[in-house]
């Protein structure tokens, strides 16, 4: 009796395990189809000509469907960003880690709270208490390095991967 019982149990468990693993494998294509498709991944980089931008001017370009803020910073803004007291920074990062060339601040213009687009690209926009960017949705303030200073956002504005192809051309992504 015992022997047939254990033999039967073994068969139950083995069958059950195969069905579970098989079910999981069959479910994976149904789940993975929702991840970014090959054509979406292929469109992942953008080249931008920076030559028309004078110091103090910004442009917004679209990269992977998201706005990327490119700012030609003025010497005062660079100084402000570099002089920030580390104790004031919620998500500590020195300005030097956020730029390749201090004149050019390039970052993803999506608030790290719930994904709204911060204001501050136009001269007439509200720029927040640190003269950088301000998110109107839930009131996050970013400084001239795009670092979070005040409000509910947990992190600094994200820096995309980019390379300068020459003096005035940058490739994002």
């Amino acid at each position: 009796m015992d022997e047939t019982d254990s033999r039967r149990n073994f068969l139950y468990i083995a069958t059950g395990a195969f069905a579970t693993v098989g079910g999981g494998l069959a479910a994976w294509p149904l789940i993975h189809q929702m991840n970014p498709a090959a054509d979406v991944l292929a469109l992942a980089s953008t080249e931008v000509d920076l030559s028309p931008l004078a110091p103090g001017q910004s442009i917004t370009v679209k990269w992977r469907g998201k706005p990327v803020f490119i700012r030609h910073r003025t010497p005062e803004e660079i100084e402000l960003a570099q002089a920030a007291d580390p104790d004031d920074l919620k998500d500590f990062q020195p300005d030097s880690e956020r730029v390749q060339n201090p004149e050019w601040l390039i970052m993803v213009g999506v608030c790290t709270h719930l994904g709204c687009i911060p204001l501050g690209q136009k001269d007439t926009d509200a720029k927040g208490d640190w003269n950088g960017w301000f998110c109107p949705c839930h009131g996050s303030h970013y400084d001239t390095s795009g670092r979070i200073r005040k409000g509910p956002a947990p992190e600094n504005l994200q820096i995309p991967e980019y390379v300068f192809l020459d003096e005035t051309t940058v490739k994002i992504g």
Partner: peptide, 30 residues
């Protein structure tokens, strides 16, 4: 955008979940 970004509150895999929901790097046609 705001509601799907709620999933980014999940620790560690939040961003992956959001991109899985979007099928893209942002909210769009997908």
């Amino acid at each position: 955008t705001v509601i799907t970004n709620l999933a980014s509150a999940v620790p560690v895999v939040g961003t992956d979940i959001v991109q899985w929901l979007w099928g893209d790097f942002s909210v769009g046609g997908s």
